[in-house]
Each structure stands twice: as C-alpha cells, then as structure tokens.
Design a binder for these strands. Structure first.
Length: 162
DNA sequence: GCCAACGTTGGC
DNA sequence: GCCAACGTTGGC
C-alpha cells in the first residue's frame, strides 16, 4: 500500500534537541509528544514523508532543517517508564496512549526560515497553516505540498524580511 | 520572565 | 456535560 508523500512540520526546543543534535545522531525517536492532535498526525505519517525541523522557544524561532520520517508510528516507550518525565500512569504496553515516529536527518538549511519571514508569507501559505495562526501551540502539524514548495523556495529566494 | 492562548482535569 | 482551575506552550 503506497500513498503520495506527505509533509509535516515538527517543533523542538533547540536547548532540548536541535537540528545539530539530529545531524549528530542521524535518527531520533520523537519522544514526549503528549497532545492528541499531534499524536494523531504522527500516526498518519509514513516512511519517507518530508519534515520541516522547527526550533521553538529560542531567540529566532523558525525552520532550521529538513528531515524525513523513518518509520511508521509505534508506542512512545517513555510513557511506560516511571522515571521519565513523559511517564503516563494511564498508559500500558497493552493499551498505549502515545505514539511516535523516528525522524531522520536530511540537511540543515543554509539560511533558516525565521518565523517572521514565514509570517510575511502568510498570504501565500494560506490561513489554514497552523504555524502562522495566532495562539497555535501544535507541535506536529501537516504541511501541504504547495506550502512545502513555497517554504523551500523562500530558502533560495531571500526577500524583504531577511 | 511575562503572559496570552490553549488543552486537560475534576468537581458538581 | 458544564466550566473554573490549573498546567503548558511558545512568542516576545
């Protein structure tokens, strides 16, 4: 069963785990997502899907790199570990609550796409793009092929906002 | 560090 | 099932 490649944006605090960390390790299980909507998106992912790696909670928030989904979703092991800060006492291996995918490094952007720059293209990206919607805290979100192309083109075509 | 926006929890 | 309280996210 194949389907067309999809695209996603995944947020991480660089102090926690940055694109440089991903480059170092190559592939990383995306642990710790504890939001149902974000979890559902991860369950929709398929190997090969494209990922924008977004740095949040940092001096210049924005897209810093590209990654790819490395596997289909499986239970997040941290939910079963009482010592983990992501432990969930209501989850069990028989009935896991939280799922994740492995994310594989592709490349670091030569010029990061700052949130400011992305916002300045909100018109082209469409109002439904969660990242530029006010108050959106979603840490995993879908990106349409058109949005993916547009954001990538911004990397090579710096404009007014840079 | 502040705080607005949002999701979750739990009393009723 | 409502909704107030609380905790978290994340830009600024």
């Amino acid at each position: 069963m194949t389907r067309r490649k999809r695209y996603w944006l995944m947020k991480s605090e660089p102090g926690d785990f940055s694109i440089d960390d991903l480059q170092r390790v190559g592939t990383e299980p995306w642990t710790g997502v504890r939001n149902y909507q974000a979890r559902n998106f991860m369950r929709d992912m398929q190997p090969g899907d494209g990922v924008f790696f977004y740095h949040s909670n940092t001096e210049v928030p924005g897209i810093y790199g590209l990654a790819r989904v490395a596997c289909t979703a499986y239970p997040d092991p941290t939910q079963f570990n009482p010592k983990s800060k992501y432990f969930d006492e209501k989850a069990s291996p028989e009935e896991p609550r939280w799922f994740l995918v492995d994310v594989q490094y592709v490349r670091t952007l030569e010029r990061p796409l700052s949130l400011d720059a992305i916002k300045s293209h909100a018109e082209d990206l469409g109002q439904e793009f969660p990242l530029v919607r006010r108050g959106s805290r979603l840490s995993v979100m879908p990106v349409t092929p058109a949005q993916w192309e547009h954001l990538l083109s911004m990397e090579s075509a710096p404009d007014d906002t840079q």
